[in-house]
Amino acid sequence: MSTATIVTLIITGLMAGMLSGLVGVGGGIIMVPMLVLILGFSQHQAQGTSLTVLVVPVTALAVYNYYNEGYINWKYAGIIAIFFVVGSYFGSKLAVNIDQKMLKKIFSIVLIVIAGKMLLEK
């Protein structure tokens, strides 16, 4: 692994962590595009690597800060987490069987639709 790659990975981690703590995004919005566009990963590799980062409690300190300010709804988070596990299992089973070009298009459309809705929302 080259020094440039290590620096890129460090920057990717910092940006994803900062945005995750700031606005609740990071994996799909930062890590996946950086891995694909800068490091040349396939869409499948980027998504798998991004999800692997989330296996460990990478957001624990951010959660701690939000908890201290009273901004966590534990009941909602628990329900979402349970079904996130189920959804991620079936989503990954589907994703690994989709052609990389189609997967990139699906990923891009999801980002555009969500961004457009949030941008145009009153």
Score class of each variant (00 low, 15 high):
N68P: 00
V86G: 11
L61Q: 01
K101G: 10
G78F: 07
W74L: 06
A95Y: 04
T59W: 00
G78L: 09
L103A: 12
N68V: 03
K75E: 13
N68D: 06
Y71T: 01
Y67W: 12
Y66L: 00
Y71C: 03
I112T: 14
Y89F: 15
A77K: 07
A60M: 08
A95I: 02
G78T: 08
G87P: 04
I109D: 09
G91Q: 03
F107W: 02
N97F: 04
G91S: 07
I98M: 06
W74R: 05
T59F: 03
L111Q: 03
V96D: 11
N97E: 07
V58Q: 05
K75N: 13
I79T: 08
A77R: 07
Y89N: 13
V110P: 00
Y71R: 02
N68K: 15
K104A: 13
A81L: 08
N65S: 04
L103W: 10
Y89L: 15
A95H: 04
F83A: 09
S88C: 08
I112D: 12
L61F: 01
N68L: 09
G91Y: 01
L54P: 03
P57D: 05
Y89C: 14
V58H: 00
A60P: 04
F84S: 14
N65K: 06
Y67A: 06
M102T: 15
K75H: 12
A62V: 01
